[in-house]
């Protein structure tokens, strides 16, 4: 089908959302499914169809979500209700709204925290953990193992005091 001329197309808005924690690295398809579920369960099918959500960009820290202009408020509220993806706790915090993907990608370059650091081994008591050290003294600590891995969010000061 021939694409419509620009003046006849629907106006879009793009929402930049930050993914926390950084090391989860969800796939774009998984993100799409959880955001779509959040929108549908909160606003219903009719509204979800009107929002016309799509994930247009995603990396380990940020994702850009498209919606129809005027629906960005509803989309942001729905993003707040996302709590897990693939059985892992996650939060999608809306960060900025723009009319172009280009503007949001420039924004991403300004506020990116950097790549996920390599995990270091950390021993607390008799248990072995993987520690991810982030800038700003933040340390995410994940227990090594297969079942019921404990997750701790600490600071470097907390680890020194242990």
């Amino acid at each position: 089908m021939k694409p419509r001329p620009p003046t006849m197309r629907d106006k879009r808005r793009y929402v930049l959302a930050r993914i926390t924690p950084l090391w989860v690295c969800p796939e774009t398809k998984s993100l799409y499914l959880v955001v779509q579920e959040a929108i549908t369960s909160l606003w219903g099918d009719a509204m979800a169809a009107g929002i016309q959500m799509a994930i247009v960009y995603g990396d380990n820290e940020f994702c850009i979500i498209r919606c129809r202009r005027g629906c960005e408020g509803w989309l942001e509220t729905a993003l707040s209700t996302v709590s897990c993806v693939n059985d892992q706790c996650i939060s999608l915090r809306s960060y900025a709204v723009s009319g172009t993907i280009h503007a949001l990608k420039r924004r991403i370059e300004k506020c990116r925290k950097g790549p996920v650091p390599d995990a270091r081994e950390l021993i607390i008591g008799e248990r072995i953990f993987e520690a991810y050290y982030f800038p700003g003294q933040k340390v995410d600590v994940l227990e090594k193992g297969f079942k019921s891995r404990e997750l701790l969010f600490l600071t470097e000061t907390d680890i020194e005091e242990m």
């Binding site: 700003g136 003294q137 933040k138 997750l151 701790l152 969010f153 600490l154 600071t155 000061t157 907390d158």
Partner: peptide
């Protein structure tokens, strides 16, 4: 599962 210092930072 989060220390109070980390909560403050975040």
């Amino acid at each position: 599962n989060t220390s109070v210092r980390r909560m403050v930072l975040e």
